[in-house]
Amino acid sequence: MQEENSLKAANGGEPKNAIILLSGGLDSITVLALAKQQGYDCYALSFDYGQRHNAELAAARSIARRYGVLDHKIIRLGLDSIGGSALTDDHIEVPRSPAEGIPVTYVPARNTIFLAFALGWAEVLDARDVFIGVNAVDYSGYPDCRPEFIEAFQNMANLATKAGVEGQEIRIHTPLIAMSKAEIICQGTALGVDYASTVSCYAADSQGRACGCCDACRLRKAGFAQAGVADPTCYR
């Protein structure tokens, strides 16, 4: 409550709006829970970008309702029309074992595009805060999950927007960026997050059941094991 009052005081007594990038996965629900704890009035933004399955979007809808976000938008993007990733091109198989370098599950420019939409909506809502669940510790080597990328995007955001030019800085929050998957799970568990409602798998079936073999599943399983928390994931 003290944090919430501080946020409102800093904003002239008015609630502070935040955009939360909500994928329906483990990291994004934790970020939403953290933003709510900090007293933000949350707006959720998800993307139907041509990914292999929509189970994560169904999870995002459910999570948005449970957390009482003020609005939840799902934006349709045709990233499958350009392909280049195992997540958007059915001709590229999702790897079932770790690979060297940047894996084929990397979706070209995905976080850049997602953050750009969040930035636009933030301006419309007069919001100054955008939250994204990128992580630079337990991740798959994606270049758009690094602190350097977030710093560069925030600098660009404040050069490219009316809000930024007028001195209303827009902040990109990455509360999980330096945390291990186990630490994220412990943080979320302390906040009462129900991880059974999330979908992380790159190749989940239509019912949201995880393959248990892809990179996302391996990181998730290892995180629960290291955190000493029972894994609630439904595996097929």
Rank of each mutant, 00 (worst) to 15 (best):
A122K: 01
N135G: 04
I172K: 00
T174A: 13
H173T: 00
V134C: 10
T161H: 04
E166K: 12
Y139C: 06
G167R: 04
M156S: 15
I170L: 09
R128K: 12
F149T: 00
Y139G: 08
E166Y: 05
Y139K: 05
L119S: 08
I113N: 09
E151V: 02
Q154A: 11
Q168C: 14
F117Q: 14
G141N: 01
R146E: 02
P175G: 05
D129M: 03
I150A: 12
I113G: 10
A122C: 04
I170H: 05
V124I: 15
T161R: 04
I113P: 12
V134Y: 03
L159A: 13
V134M: 08
L125G: 11
R171V: 09
I170K: 05
A157Y: 08
N158Q: 13
L159V: 13
T161G: 03
T174M: 09
A127P: 08
A157D: 10
W121S: 11
D126N: 14
A118Q: 00
P143Y: 05
Y142A: 06
E166Q: 12
I113F: 09
K162L: 09
I150Q: 03
F114C: 04
P147A: 06
W121E: 15
G164M: 07
I170T: 08
F153D: 03
R128A: 12
V124E: 15
I113L: 12
S140C: 06
I177G: 03
